[in-house]
């Protein structure tokens, strides 16, 4: 069944994430990035940063939480078995750092059909405690074969 196009623009509640050192280290290990600035505050300061950084795609941790919130929306009628992650975009205003409290309220930026598939575009404007943007995450999910024929 096709997705309901009137849900374009729907916003969801804010989700937050505390960026903790051991979590960042586990993430850096998992992606195989050995840069010491993701492990050690002194190494990060020596490189001119205010403290331990997270790898750029650490934003994915919050993005997965925000996407899950949207996917769970019964009104949308998404069949998760048919969903594929088609595209991902991040636009950073600054690096993510240990000690950040990141928050984002996801929204449905677009719902469109192309051929047999539908594209669901989610945006999450990830901000710090001061309300300043850290990264904009744009996720395109593909719902296979659900477009109206």
């Amino acid at each position: 069944m096709p997705l309901d196009p009137t849900l374009k623009g729907r916003e969801y509640g804010e989700i937050s994430l505390e960026v903790e050192s051991d979590h960042v280290v586990r993430f850096a290990e998992a992606i195989g990035d050995t840069n010491p600035i993701y492990r050690d505050a002194d190494a990060a300061r020596a490189a001119g940063h205010p403290g331990q950084l997270a790898p750029p795609t650490f934003a994915t941790v919050l993005q997965i939480m925000t996407s899950a919130r949207v996917i769970a929306d019964q009104d949308l009628g998404l069949n998760y078995a048919l969903v594929v992650h088609g595209e991902q975009e991040y636009e950073w205003s600054r690096p993510i750092r240990v000690g950040d409290r990141l928050s984002a309220a996801p929204r449905i930026a677009d719902i469109r059909a192309r051929g047999p598939n539908e594209y669901l575009v989610l945006e999450a404007d990830v901000r710090d405690k001061a309300g300043k943007r850290v990264v904009l995450a744009r996720t395109t999910l593909l719902s296979r074969g659900t477009a109206a024929s």
Partner: peptide
């Protein structure tokens, strides 16, 4: 992303990526 930041030498130099 790591391929880009290793080349750049600074993760802060990566402004945007779309894959």
């Amino acid at each position: 992303t790591t391929t880009l930041t290793e080349w750049l030498g600074d993760p802060a130099a990566l402004m945007r990526i779309r894959v």
